[in-house]
Computed example of a mutant assay.
Amino acid sequence: MEVKIIRSPDRKKTIQAKMVGETLVVHLPLGMHRKEERKIIQRMKEKIEKKKLKKQINKDDYLIKRFDEFNSKYFQGKLKVNSIEFVTNQQRNRGSCTPARGTIRISHRLLDMPKWVLDYVIMHEMTHLVHPNHSKEFWAKVGEYKYTERARGFLMAKGMEEEIESNCDDE
């Protein structure tokens, strides 16, 4: 990615960055130390790359298809969701759900996992729409997905299962 830096004597503290075509244009204060500039530019590049990645991975409608299939199969079509999408800002959690808003977010890091593991996380988060906790009823419903134990074992072996267990935002 090409970077164009514009230093301005009028800027004291503010920094602005935007993509113009394929070029990242960064507006910086004139007297900023070069080492600080490099850090800021690197952060801006990473932010732009994550934004591009999020857009790219959500072009596919796999998540909504699986939501619809699982909703029909396990929830008699009763669940409603306002959004279900891959996100790039979940480094610890594999998925999260906010039942009050009807939103499900799935970490992009699951794209490298077998589909049955991704499907388990989808089922796990969908179940939070009904049970915003980890009650016996919650686990009974999640257990209806035939690969639940296999997926949990896989995630445990990868050191990831505990990250799924404490991620429900029951706002």
Rank of each mutant, 00 (worst) to 15 (best):
F86M: 05
Q91D: 05
K54P: 02
L110K: 08
V26S: 01
K12H: 02
T88R: 02
G143N: 13
I64C: 06
H134K: 04
S107V: 08
I64M: 15
K158W: 09
K13T: 15
H131W: 08
K13F: 15
M113E: 13
K59D: 04
H131Y: 15
K141I: 08
S8Y: 05
R92D: 06
R11S: 03
P114W: 12
V3Y: 10
I48E: 05
Q16D: 01
M126S: 13
Y120Q: 00
V20A: 03
R92V: 10
I164E: 06
N167H: 07
M126Y: 10
H33A: 09
T14Y: 05
R43K: 12
K136G: 01
D61C: 12
P99S: 06
K115T: 13
K59P: 06
V81M: 03
V117L: 15
M44I: 01
I84N: 00
M113V: 13
V121L: 02
R152A: 10
Q16L: 09
D170A: 08
G77S: 04
C168G: 11
M160S: 04
E125N: 05
K12E: 14
E165V: 13
K12D: 11
M32G: 04
Q91A: 12
I122P: 03
L28Q: 05
K51I: 07
V26K: 04
G159H: 12
N93L: 15
D169I: 12
N89S: 11
F67E: 00
R101S: 14
E85F: 03
S8G: 05
D112G: 01
A140L: 10
M156G: 10
L28D: 03
K13S: 15
I57E: 02
S96A: 12
Q90G: 08
N167W: 00
R150V: 14
V87I: 12
T14L: 06
T148K: 13
D170Q: 12
E125V: 00
H131K: 11
R150W: 11
L30W: 11
P99L: 01
R109N: 12
K146W: 14
T88D: 04
H134I: 07
L118A: 01
F75N: 04
Y120V: 11
Y74R: 13
